[in-house]
Design a protein around this nucleic acid. Sequence first.
RNA 1: GCGCCGGUAGCUCAGCUGGAUAGAGCAUCAGCCUUCUAAGCUGAGGGCCACUGGUUCGAAUCCAGUCCGGCGUGCCA
Length: 546
Amino acid sequence: MNINQYLLSIFQDSLKKINISSDIDIQFDIPRNKEHGDLSTNLAMKLSKELKRSPQDIAQNIVASLNYDKTYIDRIDIAGGFINIKFSQQYYIQQLTNIIAQKKNYGRSNKYSGKSVNVEYVSANPTGLLHLGHGRNAAIGDTLANLYDWTGWKVTREYYFNNAGNQMNNLTKSIYSRYMQILKDENFPFPEDGYHGEYVKTIAEELIKIHKSNLAEGSKNDLAIIKKFGEEWCFDKIKHTLSRMKIKQDVFYNEDSLYKDGKIDTLLNDLESKGLSYKKDGAVWLKFSQLGLENDRVIVKSTGEPTYRLPDIAYHKEKLLRGDDLVVDIFGADHIATIPDVLAGVRAIGLDNNRIKVIIHQFVTLMENGEQVKMSKRTGKSYTLDELLDDVGEDVVRFFLIMRGVNTHLEFDLSLAREQSDKNPVFYLQYAHARICSIFDKLAMQTIDSSKVDLSLLVEQNEINLIKQLILFPEILLSAMQKSEPHIVCEYLREVAAAFHIFYHDCRIIGTEEKLMNARLILSNATKVVLYNGLSILGVTSPQKM
RNA sequence: GCGCCGGUAGCUCAGCUGGAUAGAGCAUCAGCCUUCUAAGCUGAGGGCCACUGGUUCGAAUCCAGUCCGGCGUGCCA
């Protein structure tokens, strides 16, 4: 039974009975102060103005004609203008049984079943290694995809890449230069905007192992070999890093296929025939000014190469035509400018851009001993995601990268992350899980059959508080998904862990009277289920021991 | 200049579809282990919610303006 729906229906009945017809939205909130009950509504205060009566008066009227099931609702009373609702112990026990019954599926909902979503994230070109920014993108994208999955969506995880453009040529030239520097002449010129990272030297060294000096001439064919080698090398590393992050994407979409399949040409023709493009200074311009934007922009350069806008629009067209109900992009704040262009472009060719949802996340700054660690693309000095994973571990990385709202700048505190101690927030959650496992370990039990246990023995405030936390889980996942804010799950799990630690501290399990022990074991097991499921959504492991 | 994001405790951040006394972690201080993991628990101090005005019975939350910080504003992606 869904308690919110039930409450909604009895309140609507009550309003009908006392002849208040209003399309007012009835909302139930969890009061900050626990003494105010488990849920409260400000309905009476909202109606006050419309009805020109005092909130207290209206509230009394509503409550007097409320007809509710006393087995689940203990009482409903009035405080100021608020109507406060308190659930019965039996309600909590029934919910607890439900958690145990659903186990690994507890938290899943079917609210969005039948809908499908494509989530595109990471999408780094194979021109280098993943760094911290990609890490945040990856963690947010993957966690969101998990949240879509848990709320009923059919999910496709996608990675979009370009192995053909300027950037790739630049990498090729950079590798070639390092190759020549090692083999022939240490002063061999390095491309002006080349990739300075150490990894380029590594690629060159590995290239030499295989091809010796056979590529020294730098012919078109030689460069093609270098390009392919570089691309594969980078992709291997990227995929390896992602697998460490527990990320596996379903589709790797190559931008080049947009050209090969003629989708770019089709789009160009389409735009031209609609009179939305024109030639000027040897370039093709798109009339964004007719699409509600400020300025027209170049979509094909005078060199004949398209700018990023054209393939981006074609790619989104392609994704929309696949028929998913929702197409989600995860972008860093530096990509903000492309979004209006793509949306306008897609709308221009008659597609519904409301199906595109763009999540923008702000940057990550790496802090060490209270100082910012500077990164530089120019000198190649950077801290790669792989190095970070080596340094602090997979669980810490995944957790730290989503524990803040996507709109906030994320300060990644290396010193804190490295610390294997109580200061580190991930361990707080994992520790709660490990503690529960150790109880069952001690008793040499795997789990416990709830059907034979009298859960009505759970009457302590700390026990009820813990149950209250646990039953929020499905709603939390829905809310995190709807708001596209994975950090909501982090906050929630911290509260679950806190409620458990308090319970654990105050309520002994082993050594108490057997019936009570069994009831508490059920509660512990339910906590374990929530922690495990929640952490797995975040891509974090739940250790048995710590 | 314009656009997007942010400004809440010493630090890092929740809270932002308006509600009751503004929260958490870290840091500081004071307590709790002969019984299930002290990576835990209990308590204390710490706030002009950037500023000004407006809307409202009620504003950290909504609106307008101002100030500060980040990102963007390419025939780069």
